[in-house]
Design a protein around this nucleic acid. Sequence first.
DNA 1: CTTGACCTTCACATTAATGAAAAGGTTTAG
DNA 2: CTAAACCTTTTCATTAATGTGAAGGTCAAG
Lengths: 138, 138
Amino acid sequence: MKIGDLAAKTGVAPRLLRYYEEVGILHPFRTGNGYRTYGEPAIDRVLQIRELLETGFTTEMIREVLPCLEAAKEETPAPACPTVKDLDGLRHQLSSIERRIDVLQRNRNAIERYLRAWEDALAAAPTAADGIPGPVAE
Amino acid sequence: MKIGDLAAKTGVAPRLLRYYEEVGILHPFRTGNGYRTYGEPAIDRVLQIRELLETGFTTEMIREVLPCLEAAKEETPAPACPTVKDLDGLRHQLSSIERRIDVLQRNRNAIERYLRAWEDALAAAPTAADGIPGPVAE
DNA sequence: CTTGACCTTCACATTAATGAAAAGGTTTAG
DNA sequence: CTAAACCTTTTCATTAATGTGAAGGTCAAG
């Protein structure tokens, strides 16, 4: 699969696919003439990269966790041997992810409460709506 | 409270506090001589800004959700009146946050599985550890 | 051969964050 | 009161990360 095909199948611009290679999170083969070629798994990989980036991961974090995320999908115990240091890095990533889940859940709950309160209020009296909390000094 | 005090209490550099004002997520008062002054709530606000930024929010998203996050903390139903358009924006933020929670939970689970598998394997045979999955072309 | 896809390379845009200069306000010791 | 030390102000510039655009050249299919 050439870069244009992968771009079409993932919705990610060729230019960006080259960038992902540059930062070491995507590793295409090369044909004799220098063209990048990608296998089928690259499609899922690119989609997962997008997902992780949109969720706030950096390319560096992705470079660290992506191999293990893909290994974790297989039914075989693990196709590759991480170092003790690698495992420590993963444990660190894990707790960072858990902290972020906490933050997101807390804020999701707050926004839900706020929305629910206003939806109820507007349903009761659909005449009172104007201006957001507004710039109040702190 | 002057900017240096707030910086000391939050661990966020004065320079960065001015930046947060510039991008519209922090709104200090001004004293006669032009100095910024902050109230006590600014401490929590800054800490929450840091938390949200580290979790992947942009300053633009924060500008949109922060007023409602603070409103949601009060016991009174809601101190300010959002527009229908504001509520739509919040609903959009909400689903975006939920998507991100999903992504994080999926990846947390995958990393946990991977870690557990290797911790078990290493506990059983502490002799086999070397090299992470390694760069394999895709 | 012309067309379109690919290659590399350089440059640019945006966001979050920081550095530094230059000028002025505030505080405290003498 | 003065002077030194310190804090704030604005402004211009810069860094790192993610992402794009475009020029100039190569490759391959019609």
